[in-house]
Amino acid sequence: ASLGFGTPASDNEIAGWDIDIRPDGMGLPPGGGTAEQGEPLYEAKCAMCHGSFGEGAGRWPVLAGGEGSLTEERPEKTVGSYWPYASTLWDYIHRAMPYPQPQSLSDDEVYKITAYVLYLNDIIDYDFELSQASFAEVEMPNQDSFYVDDRPDVVNARCFEDCADPAAMTIVGTIGGLSPTGHFKEDSGVSASHYGDSAPEASTATKVSLSEVAVRGQGAYDQYCAACHGSGVAGAPKVGDQAAWSGRISQGLASLVEHAIQGYQGDAGYMPPKGGFTNLADDVVADAVSYMAESSQ
């Protein structure tokens, strides 16, 4: 039944792209590592977003905790409390993390960091050597809680008369403040394609005296730089920390901007090019640097 399209995929071509891992261990490469080895890697590459204990910085995902919360009012679904298979963690870290540098980790690094995240979730010990061979020993607490879709689970009737009791009806409106409505209220001053800039997450307090450029840079800072430079993880100079910034500022803005765009290895830590967000335009990064510097004087 072949139409004759396509060219044979060589073993080499397949090997380069076949990155997936399955619960039965299929796809796991040679190598291995412990949580102990993973800790510094996690601190340097992951903690700025996911928190040193997997608790999640800001709105970035939480990776640890939440055991026993699945039936609670606000369940916390994490690797430990929810994920059925450890292979998923290896696969996902390898394919998609760190978020701004996907597929940048070596296989050994992935083993080590995976071990560390499992350790943060009390699933393996600090010195357990995670490897092709030992992977099968890892047991995930929530593994048996998944069942295949059994919908339709709800049967409604096509009733036309007396289908509900008007006296028993409570009408509940929206919770004010959360809802984006600006675009259909005239002159609301809300920009048309973004809403909720006033929503849950508060941004770093703005100094009154910021330059126009710095003001322009604040949005990008909040979005792309605050994960590290808001908390100071991984050796990042924290915004507002005048001591950490004065020496840097004295190098001149041009050099700061160059470092931010090109990345560099400093004494305190490594700054990846554009903080890893290489999709950002140079001038966006430059504006954010102005914001950071002016806010730290």
Binding site: E13, G16, W17, K45, Y99, Q101, Q265, Y270, P272
Partner: peptide, 26 residues
């Protein structure tokens, strides 16, 4: 194996077995 900070050499192409550029940046 590109460690953080190491310079990744430009790929010959974005075809297999290489991972395309657009897979490695947001």
């Amino acid at each position: 194996a590109a460690a953080a900070g190491a310079v990744t050499p430009a790929l010959a192409s974005n075809k297999a077995p290489n991972l395309p550029e657009w897979t490695k940046t947001l």
